[in-house]
């Protein structure tokens, strides 16, 4: 397990270093524009899987958290001209509080009731923001980027790096949860909530924890998006498409292992970029929907599940 940890952190450092080098060497802006979206997908999928995968509470509210992250930044920038780190940290804090509130409100609900409640939350928040003049209302709002911080040449390159850091952070947290007693408790309550309680698992507290962490991460991921787009409107920031894509990426990758959502997000995120550019964004969404349904029906454990199967039918006890 220790060797595992060293390998993971080495990988993370190499990844960040590579990203940093890329921002210094590559002059063309397009890879950063496209790459940012893929990184954002990875971070969202990983964050989603903490509640949706490990605990099995299907959250349709990714767009609510993401959108709140976006608008937290919009507000901070228009009110105080707050710098990017402040935006992200504030986003995370708001996301955590929102996760706690959502959890307290909904986690006693089972299955579909929880899912529907998360959609409801999304629409209620979106409607509220739509009616909030200060941040632009339904029409949206333009945002000015401040000067870029060295060593970066362009703001998008910097955002690309920042999002890469968020990805590493999200993965590290998700991996820690997966390998610890928290993960085991969440898995137990996903399989059978009553049996988990009767085995000593404080199910409500664990679910709240998952909800808070997942929410904080999703909001933090949304925060830099305001700067990325230089524009925000409720219709796009709270678009349910984020919920569907995130859920699809996690489930297609597989949630039995922390790496699943990453695999799913890279695969689908790249496919999406390619399809959007070569054909159209509608076709890309169609492919996404079809793949989601196909996987859920045909390979319910996702790509990770398929890998386990290939490796010899059962995963070895890692304890």
């Amino acid at each position: 397990m220790k060797r595992d940890g060293i390998a993971f952190w080495t990988g993370a450092v190499v990844f960040l270093a590579a990203v940093l080098v890329m921002t210094q060497v590559v002059g063309n802006q397009y890879p950063f524009f496209a790459g940012y979206v893929i990184l954002q997908s990875i971070a969202l999928a990983v964050a989603w899987s903490i509640l949706g995968g490990y605990a099995g509470y299907v959250n349709f509210g990714t767009s609510a958290f993401y959108g709140v992250g976006v608008y937290a930044s919009v507000f901070l920038v228009s009110a105080f001209g707050a710098p990017l780190p402040v935006q992200i940290l504030t986003g995370a804090a708001i996301g955590a509080v929102m996760g706690l509130a959502l959890g307290l409100l909904t986690l006693r609900m089972q299955g579909i009731f929880f899912s529907i409640a998360t959609i409801a939350l999304t629409i209620v928040i979106e409607t509220t923001v739509t009616n909030w003049r200060y941040v632009g209302g339904a029409a949206g709002i333009q945002i000015q980027r401040p000067a870029v911080t060295p060593p970066f040449d362009s703001y998008v390159q910097m955002l690309f790096f920042v999002q890469a850091v968020l990805v590493v952070l999200a993965v590290a947290i998700s991996r820690y949860i997966h390998n610890s007693w928290i993960g085991r408790g969440l898995q137990a309550l996903r399989d059978d909530e009553l049996a988990a309680e009767c085995t000593g698992v404080p199910t409500l507290r664990l679910k709240l924890l998952a909800c808070v962490i997942s929410g904080a991460l999703m909001c933090a991921v949304g925060a830099p998006a305001a700067m990325y787009l230089q524009y925000a409107d409720p219709g796009s920031a709270f678009n349910l498409n984020y919920s569907v894509t995130t859920l699809a990426m996690s489930l297609i990758g597989g949630t039995a292992h922390w790496a699943g959502p990453i695999i799913g997000a890279i695969l689908l995120g790249t496919t999406q970029q390619v399809l959007t550019v070569t054909i159209s964004s509608e076709v890309n969404l169609l492919v996404l929907g079809l793949m989601l349904v196909l996987f859920v029906v045909g390979a319910p454990e996702g790509i990770v599940g398929l890998i386990y199967k290939l490796r010899g039918n059962q995963k070895e006890g890692e304890i």
Partner: peptide, 17 residues
């Protein structure tokens, strides 16, 4: 049982919590 787990993991839940 916790269906997605092995026998060992089932018991580990109890031991953990």
């Amino acid at each position: 049982p916790f269906r997605s787990m092995t026998v060992a993991e089932n018991l580990m839940v109890a031991l953990d919590f």
